[in-house]
Design a protein around this nucleic acid. Structure first.
Lengths: 324, 324
DNA sequence: TTGTATGCGTTATCAG
DNA sequence: CTGATAACGCATACAA
């Protein structure tokens, strides 16, 4: 690997001239420039980006922390964040926190050690304190990291309200809702409190169950879903993540329960595959591209030292399906 | 941000001593070590990893290139590659090539410029020549980059054979297969040639259609699928990617075509969600975790300068479903 | 056991 | 327009 000094030697000039020729910065005679570029090409010279990063104190890498990128919601989010970062000339370093305890702390350390210029995080494995004092760009996605860190999330309160409205108008009297990790105080839990509030306001009883949904542990969750439906026999409406909703749909199909006739289902996230089911799953859609864009825009502003909004709330909408 | 010099000054020692104390390398009195560590902590000192990377010529980052990480197959692959890399103390930089022409070249450049230590690539956007001469670790996943670059892929020939066998034994006489991008010479296309070979060996006619399947462009693909089934009315068996198979299942449901009674479907990849459909999709499963492990193991060996197998073929298997 | 000097590959500054 | 040289922050060999 040839370095700048060798190019300079071969071209019979100083390293400074080579640097300017390569970067197109500062003065350099057209003649010499051409010669330098030719020699650099001939020698297969490639500037060491590591050094540039060191000098400019910027690697051009942003770290993204997600709980599980296999989850369709996060894989889509990741995709669009990567695209947006690329548009801004930044690269994307990823981190899956699920199952491994201090991955998130590792990423924070990388921020301190100048490996990444900033972090966008949507994981919940660490206490907020880990982010304190850290005077570097951090964006919280669907998470609250304290007053000094900008947060971006969907309007889950509206999401819960929309779901409640759908089931109310469909005439449900006994509903069951599945939620994930109520312990952590995250924006997306708002949908469940709001859902319950609206339902109870109309005199409808709501059973709430905490359950995480993964597609992979198929047999386990299938059994779990069947059990809940056995326990709450009178249930005529379900509100859950899409995956939970799909498990529910599956269970109904196997038991001959009519959907939406006897049982109505509203999912959350409106992941693409929900539209391939028959009946199509009715679901509350988040604006994933909008979230990605907001995260990256905010990160860019932080990196540029500009002021940013401390909270951005994105709209949600109903994906009309056939399960309500 | 305090640097090593400041720590040295505050501790009243030389920078070398601080370095040894922090890294636990070389001699340093227990007494001074304790003092240095305390002061480093107090000053919030963090070694600049960029400099270490520069000195050791190793960033500890591996780049992964995939066509579309929103595709469940790739999102799962990405997840397990990230986990395996983490176990080996490496970080994961990602790159989505779909829709953007020179993303892949960008990554190759990053390899030349010492941003990443190696690349695992499963994209098909560039000619093999781009990887020639490049004397750095590259692993080709489901792709052939020439004789000097190790390649890892599933046994797609067996995959095609298994699919053919399923449809043959189910009594299909007119089958349709959907494939992706036959232009590029990639291992996964073997399944279609082998499928056709086996079917024709048994006197069954095979229609082959080239179509890329994405979940997102729902309405478009739904229409396309309906058109093909209209054109090939006599079709009683379909072999496709899972997504294509699910579109087909959806179409059948809407037209009242019995599956597997009138139409049999075999998918490919056995993505998790296929099990949530009723009927469950019969599909050929790849060993995604095995692929991830093989890629990372091979990458680690390349990075360590060890010899590696130039070709690794992983087994595939039938995921029994209800569509055949 | 410790401190100093040199090098890693660039960019930026400043005389020339 | 060009070339030396100081930084960037750390690790390491070597001298003390």
């Amino acid at each position: 690997m040839a370095n700048i000094r060798e190019v300079a030697k071969h071209a019979g000039v100083g390293v400074g001239t080579v640097s300017r020729a390569i970067n197109g910065s500062g003065y350099v005679a057209e003649e010499t420039k051409k010669r330098i570029l030719a020699i650099a090409d001939e020698l297969g010279y490639n500037p060491n980006e590591l050094v540039r990063s060191l000098i400019h104190n910027r690697t051009g890498i942003v770290g993204i922390v997600v709980p599980d990128m296999e989850n369709p919601f996060f894989s889509k989010l990741l995709k669009y964040i990567e695209i947006e970062l690329y548009k801004n000339d930044y690269k994307t370093l990823i981190c899956n926190t699920i199952g491994i305890s201090n991955r998130e702390q590792d990423f924070i350390d990388m921020l301190k050690q100048n490996v990444v210029d900033g972090i966008i995080t949507s994981a919940h494995s660490l206490e907020n304190e880990a982010y304190h004092g850290l005077n570097k760009p951090v964006v919280a996605l669907e998470r609250n990291l304290g007053p000094h860190i900008p947060r971006i999330h969907s309007d889950h309160k509206k999401g819960g309200r929309l779901a409640a409205k759908l089931l109310l108008e469909a005439g449900c009297r006994n509903v069951l809702q599945f939620g994930c990790s109520f312990r952590t105080d995250t924006p997306d839990n708002d949908r469940h409190t709001e859902f319950r509030r609206v339902m109870e306001e109309h005199g409808i009883s709501v059973k709430t169950v905490e359950k995480s949904w993964s597609m992979a542990e198929y047999d386990y969750y299938r059994k779990v879903m069947a059990q809940y439906i056995d326990i709450y026999r009178e249930v005529d409406g379900v509100f859950s993540t899409d995956i939970g909703g799909l498990y529910c749909l599956d269970m109904a199909a196997h038991r001959g329960i009519q959907v939406p006739g006897q049982l109505k289902i509203v999912g959350y996230d409106a992941i693409d595959v929900t539209r391939l089911f028959t009946p199509e799953l009715t679901s509350i859609a988040q604006d994933i591209r909008g979230l990605a864009r907001a995260c990256v825009d905010t990160m860019m502003n932080l990196l540029a030292g500009k002021a940013v909004k401390m909270e951005q709330v994105l709209d949600v909408s109903v994906q009309r399906g056939e399960t309500v």
